[in-house]
Design a protein around this nucleic acid. Sequence first.
DNA 1: ACTTTCGGTGACAAAATCTGGCACCGATTT
DNA 2: AAATCGGTGCCAGATTTTGTCACCGAAAGT
Lengths: 239, 239
Amino acid sequence: MNIRLRHDAIVRILRRKGTSTVDGLAREIGASRRTVLRDISALRDQGFVIHSETGRGGGLQLDPNSMQTTARLSVVEVFALIISVASMRAAGSLPFSDLADAGLAKIEKGFSGDKVRDLRRLLDCLYVGQLSPRQDISNLGAIGPELLPAFEAAFLQRLHLRFCYRDAKGVETIREVEPQAMLILPPLWYLVAWDAGREDFRHFRMDRICNPEIVQGAQFRRRHVPFEDDVCPFSDMPR
Amino acid sequence: MNIRLRHDAIVRILRRKGTSTVDGLAREIGASRRTVLRDISALRDQGFVIHSETGRGGGLQLDPNSMQTTARLSVVEVFALIISVASMRAAGSLPFSDLADAGLAKIEKGFSGDKVRDLRRLLDCLYVGQLSPRQDISNLGAIGPELLPAFEAAFLQRLHLRFCYRDAKGVETIREVEPQAMLILPPLWYLVAWDAGREDFRHFRMDRICNPEIVQGAQFRRRHVPFEDDVCPFSDMPR
DNA sequence: ACTTTCGGTGACAAAATCTGGCACCGATTT
DNA sequence: AAATCGGTGCCAGATTTTGTCACCGAAAGT
């Protein structure tokens, strides 16, 4: 029997029975007492909290709060999860937001140094807030999934982005910009960028952007920090 | 050298050098060519995207988008993340929702059998939708974080829940209920439950619930499926 | 056409690791 | 004092992992 399957079996039995002895586990699994004890030790090393009591009527007990899983996530996947949690928190009344944050913190802790740098660079570009009630949200379009890889490359590698923009009057223009930040005011998303053609900072509603493409080789010239700190929901994350 | 350390070393070298040959890796790590090839295969199984080109000038190349991290999350933490993603998707216009879903799917894949069962049981109780515009959302209160452990135990172990409920007129009553489902209509959250005292199904606004406590030993008597399938945003998850 | 370089596979013995039994310790209950 | 129960060190045997070798197919230079 595989070592991994055995560990799973032990956790399953402990969960079901609540309390069990080492010998009972060994009999049920079909492994030796010694092996079960080694497995218990390994499970504790992996972060499972297993209480034990010696003597008559004693046994092992699995702390239900320590049931865990592992996952491998890329930087942008974590970023997407962070956007979800932050955006929901901004929408208010999220009883599980603390828990989701704790989960994200665990995920972030698993990153190595340069991945953390990537993540921070993305987070530095993200601002989530509340939409002011007087804002016009008519003609709300969908944001295309093809925007994601373009934004990721632009933000992480600091490259120019060229796209077609349809403004509020319906006029379409080609823009070449240096992306600076992403502003989320649910349900609206904005790209804050230095417009190279107009030589000024502009806000672009993301549902009005189409056909984004990376411009290779163009250097960033501007660095813009357009918002106050308290708008950013990630003050508690290390940066 | 440990197998895990070797995998980490391979990923580190590939990241740093960009491109490398199998023999180069073997020399640098101090393992045999065959072992490195086995490791590459294992890494690909784990989800790393490693491109390879044969012939002169070829070699291995790690896709930078597959740089990953590991994390250990509990069932409820994953549940909280799922709520965030689903709720945000219900709010509309989420360009990264697909990515967040992919991340969640990876997390869910890391669960062992009984944890998946727990997660499904929680998901079966969750419904996210759009609030109808004519709904009254005055007197919106905060949902206390102390509700979470109570709900988790109630849903997972199918135990009775007793709490103090303040209805729309401000009248407070003690209820003992069998929790059936959680309904999220942002920004409002409802608990759908069988009210044991009134012998009928009731909706409770979660910001009006206080001091929830588990009632040990009470058996569930009802099973309620109050919503159509299309309200549930998790149709693509295995269940 | 031929050679070299490179990823990838199968087979098999050697090396490393895991497993099981054993003796034994300390704590707790009967 | 006896029985129950978790925990540790030790060592031979079972199991898995590793290294070696032969070999294949693809690409690129000669």
